[in-house]
Design a protein around this nucleic acid. Structure first.
Lengths: 137, 137
DNA sequence: CAGAATCCGTAATGATACTG
DNA sequence: CAGTATCATTACGGATTCTG
């Protein structure tokens, strides 16, 4: 059960930008803002198998623009979930690896993934029913 | 651990819109796309305490524009996570309640929430260190 | 190879005003 | 009360091009 202690709306509720209409340090918000985006979960999944370099990550994740992959990795690095190691070589080689913190995120994601695997059919069925009943997507 | 079976990138990887650069039915994507947005997790959290009407939900969540709350609730209804019950009264009264499916989502979210509670300090600390070291937010 | 720089389209969110 | 309609803003993701 989700309590208001951990999913707390910001009591000051003023005028602000996207993604910060909450207590900026609401733990669940911080985590959802990180793994809720388009590529982060996929990148963590890929890196859970071990060290990968930039191009390997691109291939593993499939179809990410380099700019976006860089953004994703920078955010993960910034949050202490991934380490970035530049090897002094020609051609350049940069390795990415999950930190202990990053690896520990695997468990909660797996729980979510398991729920998703089990119940996605129900969601899609409900979606179809809703569309059939209302005519709206 | 996150496997490619459940977090699968779309092998066809063509040109498409936001949020569908994956197998459209990748379970984890479906779930993250739902709870990853700004208000859904908060709404589920509020409803986990029991039935609420529109205005109560607004107050509980704090600072949502009515339009956005409606969008959020419609999406939850469409996906079979919430029921919407209109009472024939004056003034109007509409009750929102979690379905069994919606309630079952509480567990995975709680796991994520627990992880967040435990590790958010590490993330924020890493963020501060990164900013101090690089000068960039 | 690993990115940085630039430009762009779309979608998510919000403010405000109005209605059944 | 419970929305809907409209408009504005912004951020996210992507395509393309260029560089150490």
């Amino acid at each position: 059960m989700v309590t208001k202690t951990t999913l707390r709306p910001d009591p000051t509720a003023g005028v602000r930008g996207r993604g910060d209409a909450f207590d900026p340090e609401c733990p669940t918000r911080v985590v959802l803002d990180r793994i809720g985006d388009k590529w982060t979960a996929l990148v963590i999944g890929a890196l859970s198998g071990g060290v990968l370099r930039f191009s390997e990550l691109r291939a593993a994740v499939g179809g990410v623009a380099p700019k976006v992959l860089t953004q994703t990795l920078r955010a993960l690095e910034r949050d202490g979930l991934v380490t970035r190691t530049v090897r002094a070589q020609v051609p350049p080689r940069v390795d990415y690896e999950l930190t202990d913190l990053g690896r520990s995120l695997g468990a909660p994601i797996a729980t979510l993934t398991d729920w998703a695997e089990t119940h996605v059919a129900d969601i899609l069925a409900a979606r179809d029913r809703f569309e059939a009943a209302t005519g709206r997507p």
